[in-house]
């Protein structure tokens, strides 16, 4: 575990910082990733360790962001929890985006990964990735044209 942390810790933290733009929260997310890894025990068998860490870091960060949104929505009467504001590019990327497209939006829009790389990280075939990217593009196209139509 310590070896893995020493080897990959900086990469995980850098990625979490990039998504969350908050040093403390990035450390929290980084810790979350290694907690998940520890729970896997000896079963950390993956075609790409870097890919597994990229995906788990992305999901831990997205969960932090989504968790804050949900609390804000449903628990507005309680004392406010710490607000997780993602980095500006991530805010712009995720604004209004359905949850099922958020992860792929990070890889495609923020990381500029190839379809092949995204397929490896997500454990999907390239065709499925291509379809989801098509869905993502269609969503952005629609989001872009809708306000214009309203103005007209």
């Amino acid at each position: 575990m310590e070896d893995v942390y020493r080897r990959y810790g900086a990469m995980v933290l850098r990625r979490a910082r990039r998504i969350l733009a908050d040093d403390q929260l990035a450390h929290d997310a980084c810790q979350d990733v290694f907690v998940q890894l520890l729970r896997l025990g000896q079963g950390w068998k993956t075609p790409s360790q870097v890919g597994w860490l990229f995906r788990t870091t992305t999901n831990c960060c997205l969960n932090l962001i989504r968790g804050t949104r949900r609390r804000q929505r449903f628990l507005g009467m309680l004392p406010p929890p710490p607000v997780v504001t993602p980095s500006l590019p991530v805010q712009l990327l995720l604004r209004g985006l359905p949850e099922h497209l958020q992860e792929i939006a990070i890889y495609y829009g923020l990381d500029q990964m190839t379809q092949q790389e995204i397929a490896l990280v997500l454990g999907l075939c390239q065709k499925t990735v291509s379809n989801r990217i098509g869905e993502l593009r269609a969503w952005f196209d629609e989001a872009e044209t809708a306000p214009r139509e309203k103005q007209q």
């Binding site: 575990m1 900086a10 990469m11 933290l13």
Partner: peptide, 12 residues
Amino acid sequence: AEPPRLDSAAIW
């Protein structure tokens, strides 16, 4: 890049 400080007790 330096790896962050390992808080192994917390993680465990």
